[in-house]
Amino acid sequence: MALKLSDYKTEFHNDWCPGCGDFGIENAIQMALAEMQIPRHKAAIFSGIGCSGKTSHFINVYGIHTLHGRVLPFAQGAKIANPELTIVAAGGDGDGLGIGAGHFVAAGRRNVDMTYIIFDNGVYGLTKGQASPTLKLGEQTKSLPTPNTNYNVNPIGLAVASGFTFVARAYSYDVRQLKDLIVAAIKHDGLAFLDVLQPCPTYNDINTRDWYAGVESTDSSEKPRPRIYKLEETGFDPVVHYEDEAELDEKLSQALIKSLEWGNKIPTGVFYKNEIITPYRGRIKDKIPNYVENPPALQRISANGKPITDVSKILDSLEV
């Protein structure tokens, strides 16, 4: 029997502020899971701490709400132990690019086959609006007593530089594009990163829905000039098509250059995609040939309460 969108929703009370961009992301994840018909027990949402961190409770698959900044280690551990699972990690921009930034970089280098979604709202929502790592230098959102004194992190650029093999950006009020990108990210064989621009109506009074829609910057006919545009509509080709240094350099550098665009023109869509790089699974398989068929979670370790691992050769070598 086909699974319906509603099958992926829990009854757990959602306490996000009205109008919060997080709703769009939650819906898009559920829509993507339903579209892909992923059996509920085969999927797990891991989340960090923050408003965004509650996402795992709203989705009716395995849901692991971890610690502030630590969502990636937990999620990778589960995926490496059981590669059959579909794993989506989700968390705030503070969670992933502030306290968890070290894990972000390390995860990129590993390229474990899973999806990571950052809810990029420019603030620490759950602790009442302090500056997040993506807030620009000198900007002063509502609850900041003084302007932000830190330079911002470039999430797309950092992901590309760290080795993520699928790097994309979406906008939480464009749920259709967001859902499509989540599907593409889950299907991607490797670590996929999705930077989701997520207005926080409560604390971020700069990057608001109207700001993204360009309401204050009208053209000559008084029509708003939307800031957000889609890369695929410009003929941008993010895919590394073949194994070649020049091809790789070109695709990496165009992604980096695009990642710097901000202000009046904000690109969304896929910046970079490389399926030539072996996912982590393949690197383990090089050492442990039957890893994929017999990963840690599927191994039998005992029979009738007795161990079945035979260490006699090791013990023989220690005998004197």
Binding site: L72, P73, A78, A106, P296
Partner: peptide, 12 residues
């Protein structure tokens, strides 16, 4: 990360 991953593994 080591302990986070360990827990992730244990959950499977």
């Amino acid at each position: 990360s080591a302990l986070g991953m360990t827990i992730g593994g244990a959950l499977t």
